[in-house]
Amino acid sequence: MGVLDVLGGAGDWLADGANWSGENGVWHRLGEHVYVSAIALAIACAVALPAGLWLGHIGRGGAFAVNLSNAGRAVPVFAVLALFMVSPLRSAGYLPTVAALVLFALPPLLTNAYVGVREVDRSVVEAARGMGMSGGQLFLRVELPLARPLVMTGLRSAAVQVIATATIAAMVGQGGLGRIITAGFNTYNTPQVVAGALLVAALALLVEGVLVAADRLFPRPAAR
């Protein structure tokens, strides 16, 4: 089967309404994928962003935290997920998948938050201190607004990575769009595999686009 035949078959699979309905349909699997990804990303943001921003503000301990989180990139996410699945957590629904994805999302969020604050022009920071700003005012009015571009870049990177990586949940019997891909592999249906991959890619691009639009929608507050 040639490339064009596979792409055509993937288009036919996606155009078939029967593949979109039911428990194994695209809409149901998409809902599972978004649910798991959103929870994992929210938890990672709640942990990494405050820590990264605060460490960047005080200028101590950040390098160690960033290096420690980056070391997590070397740990295969599937290995972490498989470990959770053979632990007492295996009967906890999506919890193992969420835990593995959180570990995967932490590095870009923490690193960009920390670096974003630390790379704020020191002359601007000193000028703000000279104007009598407190530590909290300095952080909220100067450092955070100027660090926002890097923080948003880290958020977009983490979101795309989580959405793409969530497909491996299907390999340990969890839900999500990965189930469409694994079902295609199991039945030697290459167009279905490609269709599933296209759906994951489209979701990742859509989420990144939404985050870019949201960032542009709200004006960046000027440092003052």
Results as ranks from 00 to 15, higher is better:
Leu138Met: 13
Arg220Asp: 08
Ile181Phe: 05
Leu138Cys: 08
Val125Lys: 12
Cys45Met: 14
Leu89Asn: 12
Tyr188Asp: 11
Arg60His: 06
Ile180Arg: 05
Tyr114Phe: 15
Ala159Cys: 11
Ser87Trp: 04
Val6Cys: 05
Ser37Glu: 06
Thr182Cys: 02
Gly2Pro: 14
Ser69Asn: 07
Gly184Gln: 07
Val86Lys: 06
Phe64Trp: 10
Leu49His: 04
Gly22Phe: 01
Ser91Ile: 14
Thr187Asp: 08
Val6Tyr: 07
Val207Lys: 06
Met152Gln: 14
Asn24Gly: 15
Val125His: 00
Leu4Asp: 13
Val77His: 03
Leu68Ile: 11
Asn67Lys: 12
Met171Tyr: 06
Val194Trp: 00
Leu53Ala: 11
Ala169Gln: 07
Ile181Pro: 08
Val207His: 03
Ser91Tyr: 04
Leu81Arg: 09
Ala48Tyr: 01
Val142Ala: 05
Asn19Tyr: 04
Ser91Trp: 01
Ala63Asn: 13
Val80Asp: 02
Leu109Val: 10
Met133Gln: 08
Ala195Ile: 11
Ile43Arg: 01
Val210Asp: 04
Leu14Phe: 07
Asp12Trp: 03
Leu106Arg: 13
Ala197Tyr: 01
Gln161Lys: 04
Ala42Trp: 00
Arg118Gly: 05
Gly25Trp: 00
Gly52Ser: 10
Ala51Leu: 15
Val86Gly: 07
Arg73Leu: 15
Ala128Ile: 13
Val125Ser: 12
Thr190Phe: 05
Ile43Ala: 11
Ser87Lys: 12
Leu103Val: 15
Val200Leu: 01
Gly93Ala: 13
Pro191Ala: 07
Cys45Trp: 00
Asp121Val: 11
Met171Asp: 09
Leu49Gly: 10
Phe78Asn: 10
Arg90Tyr: 09
Ala183Thr: 13
Pro145Thr: 10
Phe104Ala: 15
Ala202Cys: 13
Thr153Pro: 03
Pro88Cys: 10
Ala44Thr: 14
Arg29Asn: 14
Met85Phe: 00
Asp121Phe: 05
Ala170Glu: 06
Leu81Gly: 11
Gly136Trp: 01
Pro50Asp: 02
Pro145His: 02
Leu95Met: 09
Trp27Asp: 07
Met131Lys: 05
Ala92Asp: 07
Arg156His: 08
Thr190Trp: 02
Ala65Pro: 11
Ala202His: 09
Tyr94Gln: 14
Thr165Cys: 00
Phe185Pro: 09
Leu103His: 02
Val193Arg: 03
Met131Asp: 00
Ala204Trp: 02
Asn67Gly: 11
Gly175Asp: 09
Thr111Cys: 05
Gly9His: 02
Ala147Glu: 06
Pro50Lys: 05
Val34Thr: 09
Ala51Cys: 15
Arg118Pro: 08
Gly25Cys: 11
Trp13Arg: 10
Gly154Gln: 02
Pro76Ala: 11
Glu32Cys: 12
Gln192Asp: 01
